[in-house]
Simulated assay, not measured.
Amino acid sequence: MKIERHGKILEIIKMKDVETQEELAEELKKSGMDVTQATVSRDIKELKLIKVLSDKGTYKYAAIAPNENFLSNKLVNVFTHTVLNVENVQNMVVVKTISGSGSAAAEAIDSMDFMGIVGSIAGDNTIFILCINEEKAQELVRKLKKMLTVK
């Protein structure tokens, strides 16, 4: 559902000058997608949309350079195909990968710009991620596990 919605958002902003989140939510609803403004806000952040000046002199949403999105999608793909397990111990997240994939999976995680990460260390098949607190570590584990189930 999310992937379809993201695709539709990119299609809409390519075809139309969309100035606000509410306007984007309305366009998605016209396309048959039931969304809230909060969902659209998260989608904008995840897609890394920016506002640019339109020909009319107003600001509209636009996607960043396609090669950056392409690279980001490739890294997410690496993550989902190499990670075996994710768990947290206090404010630390431990990610187990297939042998030789720790660095690639860590790069993928770093590229996702999750909030609350202090730093990470990657080995051959294990990544240690230090979060600012236990709550952020649990939140990160939930998000990473969700990504693994969406394959």
Score class of each variant (00 low, 15 high):
residue 1 M to A: 13
residue 3 I to S: 13
residue 3 I to V: 08
residue 6 H to R: 08
residue 6 H to Q: 11
residue 6 H to V: 00
residue 7 G to S: 10
residue 7 G to A: 05
residue 9 I to C: 05
residue 10 L to A: 03
residue 11 E to T: 10
residue 11 E to R: 12
residue 13 I to V: 14
residue 14 K to P: 03
residue 15 M to W: 05
residue 16 K to H: 14
residue 16 K to M: 14
residue 16 K to D: 15
residue 18 V to D: 12
residue 18 V to Y: 04
residue 19 E to Q: 11
residue 20 T to G: 08
residue 22 E to I: 15
residue 24 L to Q: 12
residue 25 A to V: 09
residue 25 A to N: 02
residue 27 E to A: 15
residue 28 L to A: 13
residue 28 L to E: 14
residue 28 L to H: 08
residue 29 K to V: 10
residue 30 K to A: 05
residue 31 S to Q: 08
residue 33 M to K: 13
residue 35 V to G: 12
residue 38 A to R: 13
residue 40 V to M: 05
residue 40 V to H: 10
residue 41 S to Q: 10
residue 45 K to V: 12
residue 47 L to K: 07
residue 48 K to M: 11
residue 48 K to T: 08
residue 49 L to P: 03
residue 51 K to G: 03
residue 53 L to K: 13
residue 53 L to H: 04
residue 53 L to S: 10
residue 54 S to Q: 06
residue 55 D to N: 14
residue 55 D to M: 09
residue 56 K to M: 05
residue 57 G to Y: 03
residue 58 T to M: 03
residue 59 Y to I: 04
residue 60 K to Q: 12
residue 61 Y to H: 09
residue 61 Y to R: 09
residue 62 A to Q: 14
residue 66 P to Y: 07
residue 67 N to D: 13
residue 67 N to I: 07
residue 70 F to A: 11
residue 70 F to K: 10
residue 71 L to H: 02
residue 73 N to I: 07
residue 75 L to V: 05
residue 76 V to M: 11
residue 76 V to E: 12
residue 77 N to R: 12
residue 77 N to Y: 11
residue 78 V to S: 11
residue 82 T to V: 11
residue 82 T to L: 02
residue 82 T to D: 01
residue 85 N to L: 02
residue 87 E to F: 15
residue 88 N to A: 03
residue 88 N to H: 11
residue 88 N to V: 00
residue 92 M to Y: 07
residue 92 M to N: 07
residue 93 V to T: 04
residue 93 V to G: 00
residue 94 V to A: 02
residue 94 V to N: 02
residue 94 V to L: 08
residue 95 V to E: 01
residue 98 I to W: 00
residue 98 I to L: 08
residue 99 S to W: 01
residue 100 G to E: 02
residue 101 S to R: 05
residue 105 A to F: 06
residue 105 A to I: 03
residue 108 A to V: 06
residue 108 A to G: 06
residue 108 A to L: 09
residue 110 D to T: 05
residue 111 S to Q: 01
residue 112 M to E: 07
residue 112 M to T: 03
residue 113 D to W: 01
residue 114 F to Q: 01
residue 114 F to Y: 14
residue 115 M to G: 07
residue 115 M to V: 11
residue 121 I to C: 02
residue 122 A to I: 00
residue 122 A to C: 03
residue 122 A to Y: 00
residue 124 D to G: 04
residue 125 N to P: 07
residue 126 T to L: 15
residue 127 I to Q: 13
residue 127 I to P: 06
residue 131 C to L: 00
residue 132 I to A: 00
residue 132 I to H: 02
residue 132 I to P: 00
residue 133 N to S: 02
residue 133 N to D: 13
residue 134 E to S: 11
residue 135 E to P: 00
residue 138 Q to G: 06
residue 139 E to W: 03
residue 140 L to E: 00
residue 141 V to T: 14
residue 141 V to K: 03
residue 142 R to A: 15
residue 146 K to A: 14
residue 146 K to T: 14
residue 147 M to P: 05
residue 150 V to P: 00
